[in-house]
Design a protein around this nucleic acid. Sequence first.
DNA 1: CGGAGTTCCGTTAACGTTTACGGTTCCGGA
DNA 2: TCCGGAACCGTAAACGTTAACGGAACTCCG
Lengths: 353, 353
Amino acid sequence: MGKPPATLGDIAKSLGTSIGTVHRALHDHPGVSPATKARVLQMARNLGYRPNLAARYLSSKKTLRISVNTLQGTTSFWDEVRTGIREEAASILLENVELEFRTCPSLGEGEEEALEAAIAAKVDGIITFPSRPETLRPWIRRASRSHIPVVCVATDAPNSGRLGIVAIDTLASGAIAADLMGRFLGGRAGSVGITVFDMGITEHAEKYGAFESTLKEAYRKSRKLFEERTDLAGMYVTTEASIPVLSAACDAKVLDRLTIITTDLFSDLVPYIRSGAVAATIYQRPRAQGQMALRLLHEFLSEGGRRSNQVSLAPHLVMRGNLDFFLSRQSQESASKNGQNGQEARRLVQDLA
Amino acid sequence: MGKPPATLGDIAKSLGTSIGTVHRALHDHPGVSPATKARVLQMARNLGYRPNLAARYLSSKKTLRISVNTLQGTTSFWDEVRTGIREEAASILLENVELEFRTCPSLGEGEEEALEAAIAAKVDGIITFPSRPETLRPWIRRASRSHIPVVCVATDAPNSGRLGIVAIDTLASGAIAADLMGRFLGGRAGSVGITVFDMGITEHAEKYGAFESTLKEAYRKSRKLFEERTDLAGMYVTTEASIPVLSAACDAKVLDRLTIITTDLFSDLVPYIRSGAVAATIYQRPRAQGQMALRLLHEFLSEGGRRSNQVSLAPHLVMRGNLDFFLSRQSQESASKNGQNGQEARRLVQDLA
DNA sequence: CGGAGTTCCGTTAACGTTTACGGTTCCGGA
DNA sequence: TCCGGAACCGTAAACGTTAACGGAACTCCG
């Protein structure tokens, strides 16, 4: 139990060979006969060898280059994701991660090129948002064939060979929205509208050439809905296209008799929540998603990889009362950038005041 | 920007002294004159010296011993906290943390002794649950005087000299409960009951000699409440004492006309949530609390300490629809214990299936 | 048969820090 | 004067891994 872990030297000694050979064998480096390689691998297994990461980093000083392929984004969602990734990278004790951001201007614009560039740059790992999994799949597959692990954020790319995925649990997310809507409406009769801005519509947006068109269309459609369906009692609006829907509801004078649940949290939505027009919003926790994604990738690249490759996060529920709590979390992202040196940091920071 | 970080050797060279002296100066070790010590400290600051943690760990192999002082707990809350701590400890790249669990059988039983034992054992840090902050405060103060940082979980111990605190944001937690209650009740009139099982009552329980008494009392009181206040429409029950309240509501035949919000998530509560008797429960995320606590402490002990010492977590909302999601998370704690060795782990685990 | 090229393997110097040990210098007391 | 002991400082060996170099054995071809 408490015996010191096996080292390369231990393996070498018990095999009557040298450290160099053991090292080459364990790393598939040339210059080792198949016979010795097998013996080394077997012995490593027997002794339960696990590499000492501190020694490895100290010796090679090789940094892990990780490409972060995300969207510019009209909202702060992706900014938050990137912040989470940066935070997590900074909090890694061995300061051996180097982030390369390849940010696409908008949905579906240059994503494949960005992935290709990351592969060409021979990064050690990729975190990406597969907005259209079908088109990105071959690239992800190419990456993992080049032994570059890929972690998807927010959306999955199934059957792509990706290493892992970090996302809000869609079932839990939808279920909580449904439960809330049911409880909010109480026993009152009425129908509930659900907007779906899925990938199909996204490609639609591409045809229109701009995201603006989608928003206008969202306004138009929901305005029409509000006027036709007078029995509408609730509305569940997904994605950031909630603003045009809200505007439409306002213009149609139905805002106060509708129970509205949205997703995400961005500045344009804040006044609606504060006024109570939006009953609740389902927060996708971009920061946490970014953190977990980097963590997953880094642990894998460091031979840690014991954790599940599918991370499902629970969404947060934001309402009027806890709105400020979440807003203050968002704004404190660029804080704590003062370069404390070791001496200061070591001192106990106490709350004697 | 990209220049290599300063080392002890750099400081020594630019000062015309030796590595040993620099090291002693930076660590307050004896055998260095005040003059040289000042010069070293100044130069370290100038060069922006930050210790290389990999080299440090490799050289000294000293592990950080951390004492986890929590409760046995009738519910799984503290088990979850401990699991979170263990998980986080295992995921630290430099495997230099050693956990010592000092678990008290029940509330307020041997907590001071446990803290004293931890201090006497000269651990490097302590994670504790200050059930009664007033009585524990002097011990926490003694710990930090002995340069042992203390992190509180779930409850704060103000003015105790503790290093930090990890907890659910109480304001956000209460606010979401209030908001939900308001929305759930809709326009219907009626009063809302709130149970408070705070420390005062806890000490009461001590007088009674057993926790059982508190539960019985909770039943009695709420039963009485239900019979007297016929206008009661909602109920917000905190802590794990929600079960007797629910039983009372059931026996008083008011369960179906009450909107009940509870806190925490434990097995006895599950059927009530599933049946809809409990509209929602506010989940305190014990696992996350444990993780953050260990993280805070470890970062501090590793001269990282850049993060805020006050970690406020947002609670999760559990309702019928997402109940299974949370239950499955709880049960998967003891998973992934298979001892993968480095060779296997390095291989890409792909989802080609 | 000798040299060139290969394949396999041992040796060794780093990496930055900790720690134990040895060596100065200086001062007080015998 | 000489010795003992502080007080201060330099030196060097670890820690486990990586990476570069060198050497032995063996093959191949002129």
